[in-house]
Amino acid sequence: MPDNSAIVHGAQESATAANNANGANSAHPEQPSYLRHHFNSTEQQADTSNFAMWLFLLTEVMFFGGLFTAYLIYRNWYYPAFVAGSHQLNVIWGTLNTVVLIASSFTMAMGVWCAETRRRKGLVLSLTLTFVLGLCFLGIKSIEYREKFEKHHVPGAHYSLQSFVDPASDPEIFKEYHDKPLPLDMARHTEIYFSLYFAMTGMHALHMIIGIGILGFMIYRARAGAYTSGHVTFVENFGLYWHFVDIVWIYLFALLYLISRHQ
C-alpha cells in the first residue's frame, strides 16, 4: 500500500533545485526548488506552515466561539423564544446538509492523500467532488434561507411575529410541534434567535464560499500537476481549513436544529 510510506520530498526535482537555487541552497543540491532559503529542510518548512495554519484556525475558533457563546447566553435568557424559533428549522434539510458536508470533508481528505501519493487525476477528481458538494451545501442552505424570507423570519423592518403569537396560522410547523402561542414580549425575542441564526450560518456560508473559490483555483492548478510533485503544503493546509468549516457546521447543526425539538 503506497499510503504506508513516508513522502520523499521532491527527490526528482534536484535538477531544478540546483538550477534556480540561491547561494545557500547550492550547497545542498539535493534540496527541491520549493524549499525556501530560511528553512533547513522541507520537513521543517512543512511543520512550520502546519503550525501557522493551526494558529490561524485557533483565531477562527475564537471568532465562531464568540457567536456560539452569544447563542448560549441568549438561549438561556429567552428560552421559549429560542425553542419556538428553532422549530421553524427543517431537520431534514439540516441532516441532508450535514451528510453533504461530511461527504465533502471525506473527498477533501482523499484529495490530500492523492496529492501526497502524487496521483494527479485522483487529486483533480477529489477537488472537483469537494467543489460540487460545497455548492450542493450552499444550494440547500439557500432553499432554507428563501423560506425564511417568504415567512418574514429575516430580522429587520419586515420581521413577522405571526408564527409565534399565533402558531396555528403556520400549519406545517404547528402539526409537528403543537407550540403554544408566545406572549408578545417573548415572541419579539424570536428575532434575536433568527439574528443569531443568520449570523452563524451566514458566517459559515461565507467560509464555504471562500473555500469553494480557493477550490476552483486549486483544481485549475492541480490539472497542470501543481501539487503532485512533492510540494503538497497548500492542499494540506486548505484541507485543514475545509475540515474546520465542517466542524463548525457539526456544532451549528446540533445547536440550531436539534437541541430544542421537544420542550
Binding site: 500500500m1 503506497p2 499510503d3 504506508n4 510510506s5 513516508a6 513522502i7 520530498h9 520537513e43 512543512a46 511543520d47 441532516t95 450535514t98 451528510v99 461530511i102 461527504a103 470533508s105 471525506f106 481528505a109 482523499m110 492523500w113 501526497e116 501519493t117
Partner: peptide, 23 residues
Amino acid sequence: EHEHHIVGPMVYVAILLALLVGT
C-alpha cells in the same frame, strides 16, 4: 515524528462511516 506521515484511504472511509453513523 519528523517523517511526513500519510493517512490512507481506508482510515478516511472508516471515519466517513463513523461520522455518518454519528449523524
